[in-house]
């Protein structure tokens, strides 16, 4: 049984890692990789746009991760309270659906909703007298991140509830019965039984998702524009513009390697923190 697992790990996980050597080379489609030491990293770290993209990546991703945990757990708890099985299935289906839409479609939908020309949100705000003139939301630095968080949560919260709903069903009913006998209402049962029972799952999901925070790309790529680069440009969109479009594989690999190192630090740090707080980690 060891050989297939080893082969799979080797072929798809370890062998490709050898590609990190290109981070230390000048490599385009037309020239053999030439060793240039840390030149790609020097260029990267001296580029103000890169640090702006790095900050945006952390702000957007970690913010989104925290919101994801709060909303997914919260919605899972609410769904768990729905007694009627049909209603429960219906709600679950409705909130799962956005996950299956492509980001291009989602961006088009929200661009229309937020349009200054007959967009629902602007029309509503104007009619309610909250604003006098429509706001160009998608090109506004003040609003872009909020919109991005909202769209991400609209699309992915439902999907994120699945694992927590599964974890909730695994909690022993005896605990709830005992709590009821002790006079605890639904709120206290949730606070003192459900949430503590979910903590391990929350921790695992959080640490696993933390490893992916540097990978944000598609949702930004389809929603950003030059008016909001300062608050929206993330490492992957930066790499796409600078590295891949110019076929500069060496530089792109250097950026990728840097991202991986940051992800490793984040995951290891979160695991260490978990061990300190809970006495156990998952890595």
């Amino acid at each position: 049984m060891f050989i297939p697992v080893f082969a799979q790990l080797w072929v798809f996980h370890y062998w490709p890692m050898a590609g990190i050597r290109f981070a230390f080379t000048k490599y385009t489609p037309f020239i053999q990789p030439q060793y240039i030491g840390f030149d790609n990293f020097t260029r990267l770290f001296n580029e103000p746009r890169f640090w702006s993209a790095f900050n945006n990546t952390l702000i957007l991703s970690i913010g989104n991760l925290l919101l994801s945990m709060i909303f997914s757990v919260g919605i899972a708890l609410l769904i768990n309270e729905i007694g009627n099985a049909i209603a429960k299935k219906f709600v679950q289906t409705v909130i799962y659906l956005p996950h299956f839409l492509s980001w291009v479609v989602v961006a088009a939908i929200f661009t229309i909703i937020l349009s200054t020309q007959g967009g629902f949100v602007n029309d509503l705000l104007v009619k309610l007298g909250i604003i006098d003139e429509p706001i160009y939301f998608m090109a506004s630095k003040d609003h872009w991140r909020g919109i991005w968080y909202f769209i991400n949560r609209w699309k992915e919260t439902g999907w994120g509830t699945i694992i927590f709903l599964a974890a909730i069903t695994g909690i022993s009913p005896d605990l709830y019965e005992a709590a009821e006998i002790d006079g605890a209402g639904r709120l206290k049962q949730t606070w003192y039984i459900t949430i503590p029972s979910l903590m391990n799952t929350i921790l695992v999901v959080f640490i696993l998702n933390l490893a992916k925070v540097m990978n944000v790309f598609e949702s930004v790529f389809v929603l950003y524009n030059e008016m909001v680069y300062d608050v929206s440009d993330v490492i992957k969109t930066y790499t796409y513009r600078v590295g891949l479009q110019n076929n500069d594989y060496g530089y792109s690999t250097a950026v990728g390697l840097f991202q991986s190192v940051v992800s490793l630090i984040l995951v290891t740090g979160a695991n260490w923190f978990s061990e300190k707080i809970n006495g156990r980690g998952i890595v």
Partner: peptide
């Protein structure tokens, strides 16, 4: 007014 976010398709 939305020229910045326009695509050719829009």
């Amino acid at each position: 007014p939305e020229i910045v976010t326009n695509k050719t398709s829009t």
